[in-house]
Amino acid sequence: MATATNAPAPTLIVSVQRVMRLLEAVNSHPDVAPAKQLAREALAHRRDAIGVPVYFAVYREGEIEIVAVADTPYAPAVAEWADFRETGHAHALGQCLLSQLDEQGRSDHLDRHPVQLVTPCSVSDRRALLERLASTERMQTVVERQEYALGTVCAAIPITVGSGAAVMGISLPLHQEERLLPAVEQLRDAIGGLLGSIAFSISI
């Protein structure tokens, strides 16, 4: 008989495998509606386990795309008050995706979506953003504080499948900032600990 400590493992493995299949689905099919439903189901497991909103985003055809968000009334997601695609320089998901691009890819993105102040805390200009991205290791976790939304802190974990760029992220109210890094570690460990159990490579 399986012990209680072993029981959650199959569910966790299945949830991560679903997210990995989602990456393929998003990159392979123009109609991402089924993929978004799959993402919400896979993300819901992490949301409930960690107790924070969980986001999944990809860089697809030159744009930042928030594929799915899993939140609850007691742990609401950040409201998209400014277009996520146009303000990637200001939020953790976008910064994490941009950090995975090569120099030409970043330049092309910022030509189309110029850096601008989103909040008083956000990066002030293109040069400052590029310097920050250059100092960030390609697959490093990205944390931002009130750069997209005042009163909110966010973090994003890069995920790589082949040449595609994707991220999973979380957010918390500023007054709960002390929970951010422990929650990131939970999310990272949940994914990274399963590398030997899935067919894809996740770099974190």
Rank of each mutant, 00 (worst) to 15 (best):
A7Y: 12
P8V: 03
P10N: 02
P10Y: 01
V14M: 10
V14F: 08
V14C: 09
V16D: 06
Q17S: 05
Q17V: 08
R18G: 10
R21V: 08
L22F: 06
L22V: 11
L22C: 08
V26D: 00
V32G: 07
L38A: 13
R40N: 12
R40Y: 05
L43M: 04
A44N: 08
R46K: 14
A49C: 04
V52I: 04
P53A: 00
V54Y: 03
Y55I: 00
E61I: 14
I64V: 12
I64R: 01
A70G: 11
P73I: 00
A75V: 08
A75T: 06
A77G: 05
V78G: 02
A82M: 15
E86C: 07
G88R: 06
A92N: 01
C96G: 04
Q100M: 06
L101T: 05
Q104S: 11
R106H: 08
D108K: 15
H109Q: 13
R112C: 10
V115W: 04
L117I: 06
V118R: 04
V118C: 01
S122Q: 02
S122H: 00
R126S: 04
R126F: 08
L130P: 02
L130W: 00
E131Y: 03
R132L: 13
L133C: 12
A134N: 02
A134H: 07
S135V: 11
E137N: 07
R138L: 00
M139S: 14
V142C: 06
V142S: 09
V143T: 12
E144T: 15
E144I: 07
Y148H: 00
P158I: 05
P158S: 05
T160G: 08
S163A: 14
A165T: 07
V167W: 01
P173Q: 05
P173L: 14
E177S: 14
G193H: 04
L194Y: 04
L195C: 14
L195G: 13
L195W: 09
